[in-house]
């Protein structure tokens, strides 16, 4: 396996050059901070700080209920693996408007950087493909990153992007931790803004 070189703090802005067009759901820890940094914790963003493993299905429920909106789940390798079976459910329901971005740092960054399964034997992109996800790719170089936005626009959904990054720190962004406020803020934005 090639050594990861990408800095996670740089990747989301390249994948989503126009984040206002998306509704974002993020799993806990680093991906939540990276996502909040991308959107400045905007109303189109619902980030988690718990419920590990739930990001993919929250995004699926949203994508099925808002078929005219582009929905992106931003998760980490640990969060995704906790409910890896949810990829099968995503593939089975096949929402064309859903993209899952897994920021794979190969470790559990939030709890001290303990080695994760993707540093050993697990290949998330192959798992997504095996689940039946329509389009999947691995981003691990600058050249891959240059093509990621086009992948989102051109490939049929649901899409899965595994972004291999170093084990460096996530984006330094302080997000709103009032969950009840965030859920109402998000819902109001999701229901009142046009699709993009």
């Amino acid at each position: 396996m090639r050594q990861a070189t990408l800095d996670r703090r740089d990747v989301l802005a390249r994948i989503f050059p126009d984040p206002d067009r998306y509704l974002f759901i993020s799993g806990l820890a680093g991906p939540a901070r990276d996502t909040a940094g991308l959107t400045k914790d905007g109303a189109n963003t619902f980030t988690m700080a718990g419920a590990m493993g739930a990001a993919t299905t929250v995004g699926l429920g949203l994508a099925l209920s808002a078929p005219d909106r582009k929905v992106a789940v931003v998760t980490g390798d640990g969060e995704l693996l906790m409910n890896i079976g949810s990829l099968v459910t995503v593939a089975s329901m096949a929402p064309p408007n859903l993209t899952i971005v897994c920021i794979d740092n190969g470790c559990h960054g939030e709890t001290g950087g303990q080695t994760g399964h993707t540093s050993r034997t697990a290949n998330l992109e192959q798992i997504a493909k095996g689940a039946g996800i329509a389009s999947s790719t691995v981003v691990e170089t600058e050249a891959d990153l240059d093509k990621a936005a086009a992948f989102l626009e051109e490939m049929p959904g649901p899409r899965f992007i595994q972004v291999r990054v170093t084990d460096g720190p996530p984006t330094n962004y302080k997000r709103n931790f009032n969950m009840a406020e965030c859920r109402i803020r998000f819902r109001t934005a999701a229901m009142n803004t046009a699709g993009g």
Binding site: T56, L60, G61, A66, R187
Partner: peptide
């Protein structure tokens, strides 16, 4: 009604939250 067969019941909880976020 959109029916979603889940691999585990935990998925249903996330789905319920996601549907609510879209107003359903």
């Amino acid at each position: 009604i959109e029916t979603v067969m889940c691999a585990t019941e935990e998925e249903g909880i996330g789905l319920a939250a996601g549907a609510w976020l879209a107003g359903q």
